[in-house]
Computed example of a mutant assay.
Amino acid sequence: MRIILLGPPGAGKGTQSERIVERFRIPQLSTGDMLRAAVAAGTPVGLQAKSVMESGGLVPDAVVVGIVADRIEEPDAKRGFILDGFPRTVDQAIALDRMLTEKGLSLSTVVEFKVDEDALVGRIAKRAEETAARGQAVRKDDTPEVFKTRLAAYRRQTAPLSAYYEKTGMLRTVDGMKPIDAVTLEVMSVLEPHAEAAHS
């Protein structure tokens, strides 16, 4: 089962990923983690990424797709995987499709978390207040100002992915504003049929 999770920052993708990992025993692949691991391992793609990252540039799509391609060859990803934070753009989605096709694979589904952005900003502000009240350091990206910037970037770059995956018939949406357990139920009802298909 190969799935992509879409949704703005703070939509609850991380929480739901953990539950999907637990339920279906497939790894969650974060491009940030994969990039760091490839750089640390000194793989050819990792070395390419390292030089770009050191110069402060954005790692090109071809390199990121190469890192995903290497990672999904590992034994734990044989039964499937969750991609979170990738693809970020339609170009990356097209490159990912091409790479999977070359491997004789395809995506199972794309789950998008629909959320009310104003409510999200409120949710983040509340999280920052609670963190500060506990005397802990508030994450830099947990301030409403920074968060609004991240939301704007998401809308600009990643929101067009919804239309792309809708055209392919892959897109399924869930209501990300529901309580966490209710969101999990919705997510699982989307994924279960794909898990059964994979085992049959």
Rank of each mutant, 00 (worst) to 15 (best):
V121H: 00
V121F: 01
V121W: 00
G122Y: 02
G122S: 08
R123S: 07
I124P: 02
R127N: 00
R127P: 02
A128D: 03
A128N: 04
T131G: 03
A132S: 09
A132I: 01
A132T: 03
A133I: 00
A133L: 05
A133D: 02
A133W: 00
A133Q: 09
R134D: 03
R134V: 00
G135V: 10
Q136S: 13
Q136L: 08
A137E: 14
A137T: 14
A137R: 14
V138C: 06
R139C: 09
K140M: 11
K140R: 15
D141Y: 13
D141L: 03
T143E: 14
T143H: 07
E145G: 15
E145V: 13
E145A: 15
E145W: 15
V146M: 10
V146C: 08
V146T: 12
K148L: 12
T149H: 11
T149C: 04
T149V: 09
R150F: 05
R150V: 09
L151Q: 11
L151G: 13
A152H: 10
A152V: 04
A153M: 12
Y154E: 01
Y154Q: 04
Y154S: 03
R155W: 05
R155F: 10
R155P: 00
R156G: 05
R156Y: 05
Q157C: 09
Q157I: 10
Q157A: 11
